[in-house]
C-alpha cells in the first residue's frame, strides 16, 4: 500500500515513518510539508492512502482535500481533537491523535487496507466513476461523498452545488471542470446549468420548450435543453 505523509513537522514525519516501518506492506511514496507539495506528489505518485495533518501552513488539510478531484482514502492526524475533526469522524476513514499509539495505528491501517482492497480494480480510470469519492466541506461540516450517491450537480457561479441525501453543499469547482472529469457514460451534462447522474432518473417527459423534463428519485425536476436532448436520448439508448 503506497502511503503519502502530509505533515509540516519534520520530527513528526520521522516519528510516523518509524511507526510505519513496522508494517511490512506499507511503502512511503513521499512526504509533503504543505498542501502545494502534497498536490504535486498525489498527482505524480498516486498514493493509496494519505496520512494528513489538518494544521498545515498556507492551505490546511481540509482545503487540500477540497481541491482534489477525487479524494484518496485519508487517515487524519492531529495533535488535539478539534471539533472540525469530530464533525466528520463518522465518514472519515479514521483519525489519529499525536503522539500515535501503535495499536491504534494498526487498527486504522486495517480499516484502510479493507477500503483500498475494495477500491482496487474499480479504480485506475482516467475519468471519475460511481465508486470515486469527493471531499466536500460546507462550513463546519465535511463529507466524503461517493459519486454514486450524488444525484445532481448544479452550476452556482464558479462553484457547483452537489445534491446528495438531504444535503446541498457547494464545492469550489466549476461545472465545466466537473464535466471534463466525470465519466460521460454515467454523468450527463443536460444543460448549461446541470449535470445529472443517469442512475437517479425516475421519469422523463417532453417539455414545453422542446427539450425533456427529468424527474429525479430525490424529487428534483430538471430540464434537458433542446440542444442536448438528442444526445441525451442516444446516451440512454446505449
Amino acid at each position: 500500500m503506497k502511503v503519502l505523509l502530509i505533515e509540516d513537522s519534520r520530527l513528526a514525519r520521522a516519528e510516523m515513518k518509524r511507526l510505519l516501518s513496522a508494517e511490512a506492506d506499507i511503502e512511503i511514496c513521499g512526504e509533503a510539508e504543505n498542501a502545494h507539495q502534497a498536490e504535486t506528489l498525489i498527482a505524480s505518485s498516486e498514493p493509496d492512502l494519505l496520512f494528513l495533518d489538518i494544521n498545515l501552513p498556507g492551505r490546511d488539510g481540509f482545503e487540500l482535500l477540497a481541491a482534489l478531484d477525487s479524494a484518496p482514502p485519508v487517515i487524519f492526524c492531529t495533535a488535539y481533537s478539534e471539533h472540525a475533526v469530530r464533525a466528520f469522524e463518522q465518514n472519515a476513514l479514521d483519525y489519529l491523535v499525536k503522539p500515535v499509539e501503535p495499536s491504534r495505528l494498526s487498527r486504522a491501517l486495517d480499516k484502510a487496507r479493507q477500503s483500498v482492497e475494495s477500491d482496487r480494480g474499480v479504480k485506475k480510470q482516467t475519468k471519475l466513476g460511481l465508486q470515486d469519492r469527493v471531499f466536500v466541506r460546507d462550513g463546519e461540516r465535511c463529507w466524503f461523498v461517493t459519486l454514486k450517491d450524488v444525484r445532481l450537480f448544479e452550476v452556482e457561479g464558479n462553484y457547483s452545488r452537489l445534491y446528495f441525501g438531504t444535503e446541498r453543499p457547494l464545492i469550489p469547482k466549476s461545472l465545466n471542470h466537473l464535466e471534463s472529469r466525470l465519466d460521460p457514460q454515467l454523468f450527463f451534462r443536460i444543460s448549461r446549468r446541470h449535470i445529472v447522474n443517469l442512475q437517479w432518473i425516475s421519469s422523463i417527459a417532453p417539455s414545453v420548450s422542446g427539450g425533456l423534463q427529468l424527474t429525479l428519485k430525490g424529487g428534483e425536476e430538471v430540464e434537458v435543453s433542446r440542444r442536448q436532448a438528442s444526445l441525451f436520448r442516444e446516451a440512454l439508448s446505449l
Binding site: S9, L11, A12, E15, R18, A79, V97, K98, P99
Partner: peptide
C-alpha cells in the same frame, strides 16, 4: 495550549531516537 503540548510531546518522541 493543548495543541502545542501534544505536538511537542510527539516531536520529543521522535527526538529521543534522533
Amino acid at each position: 495550549n493543548p495543541h502545542f503540548l501534544f505536538n511537542c510531546l510527539n516531536n520529543l518522541r521522535a527526538l529521543v531516537a534522533e
